[in-house]
């Protein structure tokens, strides 16, 4: 494209930009404005209160808990999902028998509709009827099993496991794609030099998938942070707020309790926390970037 093609630039961009502006930025702006008013369903004439609602919510203990939960949830899911995704990609890159079928099968959880996955897992975790406890009891690991989702100690972890099951296949495929682009000649050369599998992994494979890993990390972080269905179906944020994260809290305040102003404030906070989290990633990546840009 040259300077003369400016019209083409705007022609190509216009539809996407207009849609995102009108259906995402404009409503978000509305939500930000709403957050400075005290509004709820039962109070149809909103009053401008500035940062009053922010201050109130910020001072509640619950707010801190939701920030911590959201970070735990996001980082737990993202980390486990990418580690599991990476290792299963390595495994599926070994040219074992049945590999073609496996590569297709492994993606199934990701294809499964989110609500369906959540309902299945809720049932798997059921203390009496669920498959997991029945399995543990029959193995003799436990006498009565665990109340996975009803115990404040295990609820978040259980929700994370279910979300990882649903999400890791995506990381697998992305890593698999990256692995297939690892320079074979370099690997062969390393083998001739007598480098073992671990050495090759650290010296050749990891550096060459660095950037993909970063993209994967950022993308899965955003998707997980705003992932609503799983927790809503599993626990509705309970027990005792142990699994309440930003999206479930926003939904609960807005639609469950008719408190739109509070929901708007949580919405704004939610974006701030997410932006900080992503910024942190980039800061870490920048500071640890190797001098030699390309492997």
């Amino acid at each position: 494209m040259t300077k003369n093609d400016r019209w083409l630039v705007w022609l190509f961009l216009a539809p996407a930009v207009v849609l995102v502006a009108v259906l995402m930025y404009y409503p978000m702006l509305g939500t930000v404005i709403e957050s400075f008013y005290s509004t709820s369903f039962i109070n149809p004439d909103p009053k401008f209160v500035g940062l009053e609602v922010y201050r109130r919510i910020f001072s509640q203990q619950e707010f801190g808990q939701i920030v911590v939960n959201s970070l735990l949830w996001t980082m737990g899911v993202v980390l486990l999902q990418n580690v599991l995704g990476f290792f299963s990609a390595l495994l599926l890159n070994q040219h074992l028998p049945g590999q073609g079928l496996m590569r297709a099968l492994v993606l199934l959880p990701w294809v499964l509709p989110g609500v369906v996955a959540a309902i299945i897992w809720r049932f798997m975790y059921d203390p009496q009827l669920g498959l997991i406890n029945s399995f543990l009891i029959s193995l003799g690991v436990s006498d009565t099993g665990m109340a996975w989702l009803a115990d404040t100690d295990t609820a978040m972890l259980s929700a994370i496991v279910a979300a990882v099951w649903k999400g890791f296949p995506f990381s697998t495929v992305v890593f698999l794609a990256a692995l297939q682009n690892v320079d074979e000649e370099q690997v062969e050369a390393a083998i001739i030099d007598g480098a073992g599998p671990l050495r090759r992994l650290v010296d050749i494979v990891l550096p060459s998938i660095r950037e993909v890993a970063m993209i994967n990390l950022v993308l899965t972080t955003i998707l997980t942070f705003n992932y609503f269905d799983m927790i809503w179906v599993l626990t509705r944020g309970g027990p005792q707020n142990a699994t309440h994260i930003f999206p479930t809290k926003i939904y609960d305040l807005g639609f469950g309790q008719f408190r739109f102003g509070d929901a708007a404030v949580y919405g704004v906070f939610s974006i701030l926390v997410l932006v900080l989290l992503i910024a942190l990633y980039f800061a870490i990546q920048r500071s640890s970037r190797p001098r030699v840009a390309r492997a």
């Binding site: 059921d126 989702l149 009803a150 027990p239």
Partner: peptide, 21 residues
């Protein structure tokens, strides 16, 4: 009561009632 009260609903209790436990 069956364990897991904090995440149990009247619906999940129904299944236990129906299977006789």
């Amino acid at each position: 009561a069956p364990q897991g009260i904090l995440n149990a609903s009247s619906g999940s209790m129904r299944e236990l009632f129906l299977n006789g436990s």
